[in-house]
Design a protein around this nucleic acid. Sequence first.
RNA 1: GCGCCCGUAGCUCAGCUGGAUAGAGCGCAGCCCUCCGGAGGCUGAGGUCAGAGGUUCGAAUCCUCUCGGGCGCGCCA
Length: 586
Amino acid sequence: MKNKIEKLLLQAVATLKTDGVLSHGADPTINIDRTRDPQHGDFASNLALVLAKQAQLNPRVLAEKLIAALPVDPTVTKIELAGPGFINFFIDKSSQFQIIPQILADGPAFGLSKIGAGQKVQVEFVSANPTGPLHVGHGRGAAYGSVVADLLEAVGFDVHREYYVNDAGRQIDILATSIWLRYLEACGEALPFPSNGYRGDYVRDIAWQTHHTGGNDYRRPAEQVLENLPLDEPQGGDKELYIDALIARAKTLLGPTLYRDFFAIGLDAILDDIKDDLHDFGVDYQEWFSERQLMDDGSVEEALGRLRASGHLYERDGAIWFASSQLGDEKDRVVVRENGQYTYFASDIAYHHHKLARGFDLIIDIWGADHHGYIPRVRAAMQALGADDNKLKVLLVQFATLYRGDEKVQMSTRSGEFITLRQLRNEVGKDAARFFYVMRRSEQHMDFDLKLATSKSNENPVFYVQYAHARVCSVLRQLDEKNWERNPNLGLDNLAMLTETHESDLMTTLSRYTETLQKAALNYEPHQVIQYLRELATEFHTYYNAHQFLVDDAKLRNARLNLICAVKQVLANGLHLLSVDTPESM
RNA sequence: GCGCCCGUAGCUCAGCUGGAUAGAGCGCAGCCCUCCGGAGGCUGAGGUCAGAGGUUCGAAUCCUCUCGGGCGCGCCA
């Protein structure tokens, strides 16, 4: 309908151009909004207000000319000039019924569109360091990222979901060494645990498991491990130097092969855990992309070579720097450290180089808000690689604060007292967790109330929406119990009987679904889908309360059943998009 | 100090590519069950859109400044 009105307006603009009222030139963007007030009709355009200045006419005068130039269309019953120059369109009431057969025919495919067809998009999200289980901070990125990806797919984009695995850095060495020390403990060696090591129980679990299945292959005497080490922090030393010395010791004592094996055991254990966790959270990827692979196959060297060739690298203080400040960054960044090792940023340049080489039309990175300072240097790198950095879209996700009722849930990564995503799922369930995470704009700091998320009451929006779905199912069961058979065709023939305000409101809302998905997808705003579903659920509950569906008149009954089945379908499609279940009873 | 995000009803938040009287849920005050699930619905009170300037026919929305809150400013990832 919107498209139709847009066409009509464009024709009117063309006419006015020929008449010399409007100057020739690019067509204006036609803005058509649904009205809030029914007195303003169904749709309104501010076109005359926008063009008034260019035409050097009073907006209302221009609007009159536009209206006069509008072609006649049978579905537009009335066009009005209103307010400062709005053009209001009134749509033929009977045309609104069409939405019902359309929904019933399209079923699960209703709402899908093709506006992104032919475009390849990569969405990279979560990408947490595989040094421990995911926590609730990652949960929001996971929920948000997966719905953004699903939304883009729903509107026709070819979507590639990816998790970047930071399996090459020093943190992973610290993890491997931490597991090794716990393993040595399990073997019966007595040694102190480094203050900078990973202390979580999962480290011990992996170590014990490794000892249990792998025996003593990796065992070395404590005296050898501890021989000539610098002091750890509690003893007045430096914890960084100490842990680095321990890593070096592990490599020496185990030798390259065994060290690599042990390293892989730890990494795989944690990665498998993350994969399971995300899968159970409704998040699946097309690709888990390894940072180490970039190191090993020369991609990092190649990417840096390009930067060097284009004159973006220089040496200072024994390190290699990328002159990112020339390209909008605050300062230059080190890519190769004094000790010859690549920085994380170096592999990230290679990673983005790789993304570009894969030919994506759009590259979406979803990061925690704490990484925002990183954006300019990545953009700088893309430019330096000769790419259009407009292809990169970085979406930031703010942190969520957990509450249990009024009580704030304390968390501290330092002491290891963080709530894991798995704990969250166990407490509130996948559905509520996803729904709550995505309910707010991603750039908004959010308060996540665990108590509310588990409550089975009208205050809980997840249950409220799911309940609307279950309620339709319940009505259909009632139909069965009354030994009535649903007759969709009879209903379709009598849609004109749906004359109640509640009914036409519902049909209007149903007809907004497709455009809601498009808007949500193109703006990367999944919360709009939730807003919509809550609205639809409310209107359904209101309708339910006001009118009886299972009436004796078979024509009216089937017309109403068609309407509520359409509601059920759209609720299901929306919830499915969010990877939230659609229970038939609760 | 510099940069990014945020500040809308008592609370949690929509609305932000400028548009017609600023919305929802919760909470609060009333009300509705011989009726398909009351896990629901209806009505009402409640706002200087943090503040001050500016741009505009029109600003919660755009620009500047101020005040508050969060985050970031490593040869860490």
